[in-house]
């Protein structure tokens, strides 16, 4: 129904907006970065907890846990063992804020305000997610830097550090998607925070994050197999140590660390897709004009 007459009717006063998909992504990317900077609480809290873990765990458990670590990975000190796990913890903690941001937007009306704007809706969410991913990359870089200061060694050097950041980002996707699903379903800030935070600790502890799986009870080893954190931590650790550290899947088709990295990345990518699809479905339902 867009005859020249009709499109002319509205053309008369409004200069057609010059929005492009990339432009819309950029606008939203900027807004969410600005909000992150404005809200040091988000930045600090999602960094502080992992940082406290890093320092306390190495100081308190370092000597004891070091023994367990060196059984499976001779010559590796606990700080080096722990840093990749903390990098994944940062990704996990930061991913929660994605859903919180969405709930806040729904609560303060910005969500609807964006819906009535001519921006492309996919671009809106892509821009927001990119800002969160960007923040996660920065935070992992900070953790890696602190880790090195505390004596950790990234065997694969700067390229390895970038690789760990990439793994952290890939890992974050499923949890970003999950926290957004919680946000849409609960539309409540507290429920989202509680829901996402309650999961964090079990996920972290029931994985290969803090100790090698061999020294953990059987039921934890079982759970660790289906725990995404195990795959994220193993991939990051394999890059850190340049060794095949994965024990939940025995892959020998590749060489050395790749025997861990390839399957772990595949699992994380699959998870990201599955959870991502769920989040996209819920978000498009929430932003649709269909009457419910």
């Amino acid at each position: 129904m867009s005859t020249p007459t009709e499109s002319g009717t509205a053309d008369r006063e409004v200069a057609r907006s010059a929005n492009t998909f990339v432009g819309d992504v950029w606008v939203n990317f900027k807004r969410w970065n600005l909000k992150a900077v404005r809200n040091p609480f988000v930045l600090v809290v999602s960094l502080a907890q992992p940082f406290i873990f890093l320092v306390l765990f190495t100081e308190v458990f370092g000597n004891v846990a070091g023994g367990a670590v060196s059984q499976g990975l001779p010559g590796i000190d606990y700080t080096t063992f722990l840093v990749p796990a903390i990098a994944i913890q940062v990704a996990l903690a930061s991913a929660v804020t994605s859903g919180i941001g969405l709930v806040n937007d729904i609560e303060n009306g910005m969500f609807e305000k964006v819906l009535v704007s001519p921006m492309n809706r996919t671009a809106v969410f892509v821009g927001k997610t990119l800002a969160e991913v960007f923040r996660i990359a920065l935070q992992i870089a900070i953790i890696l830097g602190l880790g090195v200061l505390l004596g950790a060694e990234i065997t694969t050097g700067v390229i390895g550090a970038v690789g760990i950041m990439a793994v952290g980002i890939l890992f974050s996707f499923w949890f970003i998607a999950f926290s957004n699903m919680l946000a849409v379903l609960t539309r409540d800030q507290e429920s989202t925070i509680i829901g996402a935070n309650l999961l964090q600790f079990p996920l972290l502890f029931l994985s290969s994050a803090f100790l090698p799986l061999e020294v953990l009870p059987n039921w934890i080893q079982l759970f660790a197999r289906i725990n995404p954190v195990t795959y994220g931590v193993d991939a990051a650790r394999a890059i850190m140590l340049d060794e095949d550290v994965m024990t939940v899947l025995e892959v020998t088709a590749f060489d050395g660390a790749l025997n861990t990295i390839v399957p772990a990345v595949a699992v994380l990518a699959g998870l990201g897709l599955v959870f991502g699809a769920g989040a996209v479905y819920l978000l498009s339902r929430a932003s649709s004009s269909d009457v419910r």
Binding site: M1, S2, S17, R31, L34, K35, G109, E112, K113, V116
Partner: peptide, 28 residues
Amino acid sequence: GFDVRTEPRKIRESIGYMAQETSIDPEL
């Protein structure tokens, strides 16, 4: 002049909508 079902984006470009609840980003 635009149909709400088939041309929603053209409508969005040409209207301003102030919701009942104040809608601003408090952090900005």
